[in-house]
Amino acid sequence: MVQPLDHQPETPSQTAGPYVHIGLMPTYAGNAGYYDQEIGVSPISDGAQGEVIEIVGSVYDGTGWALRDALIESWQADSAGKFPGQDGADPAVSGHCRFAADAVTGEFTLRTVKPGRVPSRYGRAFAPHISLWVVARGINIGLQTRIYFEDEDNEGDPLLSRIEQRPRVDTLIARKIGDGKYRFDIRLQGEGETVFLDI
């Protein structure tokens, strides 16, 4: 025998299920007015510094069908690369948003400010990115990924440079489709499968 470790494993995940919206986005689920203030309605408020952008996309399953029930959370730095709570962070950036696939079309929209570069522990900065966490019925543990931007300098990003199959890097890069508008699709499985993270 050996001494026991002073450590206990993480509680296991379970799927968020088909009704996740009643808990996390009551208005979306048809229960408007449940709370005075819902969580994650917008990652920015009036006066946020930087370029306001809109990212649209869908979450596709392995058959190419766009999920109508996906729920996504995003987390990001402000336009100067500071996270909410850090010294000097933009008080108009909460950094956190919840958004859902449209129940009819499956398309989501995230309206936010473009984040700045974020320092890493090892010197080289991360290119501007938004972290995502995707949950839905049939997803047994939330899927983590990131949105990068095609009109930013992504060279040398410590995460993107770790992707061995270079064509797969594109799955993390939002395409510019207009002034301040981007498209970012998430493919859960199969051809063009998004790079998901264990981070």
Binding site: D61, S120, F126
Partner: peptide, 18 residues
């Protein structure tokens, strides 16, 4: 879960500020 689970392995990295 059959059509909603990734086929490819996850990319494992040490956490950062994000």
């Amino acid at each position: 879960s059959v059509a909603r689970s990734p086929n490819q392995p996850l990319l494992s990295l040490e956490s950062g500020p994000s």
